[in-house]
Amino acid sequence: MLPGFFKFIYELFLSSPQPPQTRPIFWNEIFPTVGLVNIALSLLFMAIFYYLINHILPIAFFKKAGHWAIFLFLNAALNFWFALQYCDGKEVEQNSYVWSFCTVNAIYAAIFYILFSFLFRRWSRGASTTPFKF
């Protein structure tokens, strides 16, 4: 179920993993793990921004769209790095496919972060309209 989902979403942007011999490890281990970590990190970053900094802490002066964007990039970068490390840990050679995958993972990190931001921000006290109100 989970591997299928992540295979689906990663391969929206990527071809099947190359070289072909790495497909099982991508499909069964890298995609689900990196994907789950991506979701978890994005949730974490969202929670830190909306709930730790802009809800629990008494001084909430880090709520501008720019601040939000910093978190977005941090999240993307961290997920890029994690994907790279994880592939390395799984002894997948760093070929162009791995780099593409890391890039796509970073893009998904941004997407998840944005998605979670708009899903959950309404309960944040200080940032429920960050980055913008609609």
Partner: peptide, 21 residues
């Protein structure tokens, strides 16, 4: 104690945000 700055800009802003909801 950074958590109690008395009545500050931040205090009001937090309360305004919370009350607005």
């Amino acid at each position: 104690n950074p958590f109690d700055k008395g009545i500050s800009h931040g205090f009001f802003r937090n309360e305004l945000d919370a009350t607005e909801k």
